[in-house]
């Protein structure tokens, strides 16, 4: 009994921690209230929107490849989950970088719809 309690507790702790890339698509679609479009996501990711940078400036327009920080030149590991199992597994990290990188590229926070679209596109990349 004691052991099964511990195991159950561990299980809950583990499942609270580990998110999968699909969970983020589900979450953003729910927040947006409408389904995501990978096609819109691709356009959003690769086009500059008034600012100096698009997402692709640092993550490339093929995010299964490694990128480079547009200002510092530091290498960035691939963003697409198919190429990098560490991506989109931690909600605090995902939220932090969407906040920062959206501010840097579109000068505001991204909408839930935009995040859902980007997720759908990144998940479709093989």
């Amino acid at each position: 009994m004691r052991y099964s309690l511990i195991i159950a507790a561990l299980f809950i702790a583990a499942s609270a921690q580990a998110e999968t890339p699909r969970d983020f698509l589900t979450r953003f679609e729910k927040e947006a209230g409408s389904p995501a479009s990978a096609e819109r996501g691709a356009r959003f990711f690769t086009a500059k929107q008034g600012g100096e940078w698009s997402c692709a400036s640092c993550h490339t327009d093929k995010p299964t490849q490694a990128g480079r920080h547009a200002k510092t030149d530091k290498p960035i590991t691939p963003l697409a989950p198919a190429a990098n199992a560490e991506r989109f597994t931690d909600a605090a990290k995902v939220d932090k970088w969407f906040r920062r990188n959206c501010n840097d590229t579109v000068n505001r926070l991204c909408s839930a719809q935009e995040k859902a679209d980007v997720m759908a596109w990144l998940l479709a990349l093989k």
């Binding site: 932090k96 920062r100 501010n103």
Partner: peptide, 11 residues
């Protein structure tokens, strides 16, 4: 940090 050398590095 939100205006860190032209990037948002907020924490």
């Amino acid at each position: 940090l939100s205006k860190h050398f032209g990037t948002d590095a907020s924490l």
